[in-house]
Amino acid sequence: MFFRVMDKDRLPDLVRGLAAEYEVIGPIAKGDEFVFAIVSDPTELRLDYDTTILPPKKHFMPPTESLMSFRVQDSEVVGEELDRTPRVLFGLHPCDINGLMLMDNVFLQGYEDPYYKARRESTLIVGLNCMPHEGCFCKAWGTDEVHWGFDIFLSDLGDRYFVSVRSVEGADLLDRCVETRQITPEDTAEFQRVASEFQASFEGQPDTSQVPLLLDAKYDDPIWEELGSRCLSCGACSMVCPTCYCFDVRDRLEPDGQEGTRERVWDSCLYIDFAEVAHGHNFRASRAARVKNRYYHKQWGYLSKFERVLCVGCGRCASACKADINPRIVIEALQAGGGSL
């Protein structure tokens, strides 16, 4: 990794330079909130965003995507398209970059998922530093920082960006698109100061040190029944989660019934039929079992395979949940001895 400094007024040059070669996706305003969407003009970019409604996972695994088109008669696959559109995801915060790396473990290890892989390989990541907002608890999981997983990373130093350059593609890009200069000791000192200020501004982070232990010990705790009685099984938490990857596969037939498309759609383990098998047995028929599974999978099951929990503390689920269920509340309840919320 090496570092450069870019004056802030050069930002439009960078975005325009990128847009000449890539589809640029970045945070833009939508009502009072923000979304990751195609940026057609650099002035649309809202690098002051706190968080977005949906995480960037939709650009690697869209809510609905075609896996293949088929012919019914002879069960032949007639089309299989991988999306290799050159893209840049611009302005991702550390939590979301960490979220992508957790998704990579699932989709790029063992059997590789060709659809995810094609998009991932065609997408550059431009990270952006942030300041914690009310819902953030990334620091609790150690996902408040990233040291890899991006091509370039912009740290805001007021009138300029401290640019961390991680990949060859990132270095080339910077070279081609925008004027930057060498870092000075003053830049480095300011970069350090901003990083320290960021670290110091987290408040009320949950203590996650015992989470796997607590989950193990309190598998049969009444807290799960209580959470189950509150959960609406709406799945909103899964949809907005940067690390929820479960999906369903559905076939859609053309009107002639001869050809069709096999599609992958986002799914949620909170939906009632998620673990139901053919002749009706449902391995998680109760809402309590489903809520419990979500937390066990994220903070125990995934941990057992990849040595990380499957949560980056972005806080989106806390905003999305109408029943006030989120990791913070669950962790605190488990620590408080469980039993009751």
Binding site: Y111, Y245, F274, A275, W300, G301
Partner: peptide, 24 residues
């Protein structure tokens, strides 16, 4: 174990048994 193996290779999440996937 019978579970709802949808993808069959550890991606879709449907066949979870505790911290494992029945499919892989």
């Amino acid at each position: 174990f019978e579970r709802r193996m949808k993808c069959g290779f550890g991606k879709c999440g449907h066949c979870g048994v505790g911290h494992q996937y029945a499919c892989i």
